[in-house]
């Protein structure tokens, strides 16, 4: 950070405006649609496919990201919050993956 950056930071603190009902209703709609697709897929033959788990994980990750970015305002808020959360999340995911490998639940290749 440059010399005066810490001081100037203060002026930048007021973050971009939060979304309103206009966006929120779309966010809610998307979340509902993805959840519905998740549950629907569970009852189709696709459930036996090797792509089933990755697909569900991708949909779940999308919901996760939508809530965090819009409902929790991370997309609009100060970068400090983004770093705090993303850093911790990466650490948590790393530990989770490492444990799954160590207990042979996941295998390389």
């Amino acid at each position: 950070m440059s010399d005066s950056a810490a001081i100037v930071d203060r002026a930048h603190a007021d973050h971009k405006a939060h979304p309103t009902w206009k966006q929120y209703k779309w966010v809610a709609l998307w979340l509902t649609v993805i959840t519905a697709v998740e549950v629907w897929v569970y009852y189709t033959p696709f459930r036996e496919s090797p792509l089933f788990a990755p697909t569900l994980l991708a949909m779940s990750a999308a919901k996760f990201a939508i809530v965090v970015m819009f409902y929790m305002h991370l997309k609009y808020d100060h970068w400090v919050f983004r770093r705090l959360f993303v850093g911790s999340l990466v650490a948590a995911m790393g530990i989770l993956m490492a444990l799954l490998f160590l207990f042979s639940k996941l295998k390389i290749g």
Partner: peptide, 14 residues
């Protein structure tokens, strides 16, 4: 963490 991120005196950059 909050203290260090947030309560540094003017000019006390990271």
């Amino acid at each position: 963490i909050t203290t260090i991120i947030h309560m540094r005196a003017p000019g006390m950059s990271m």
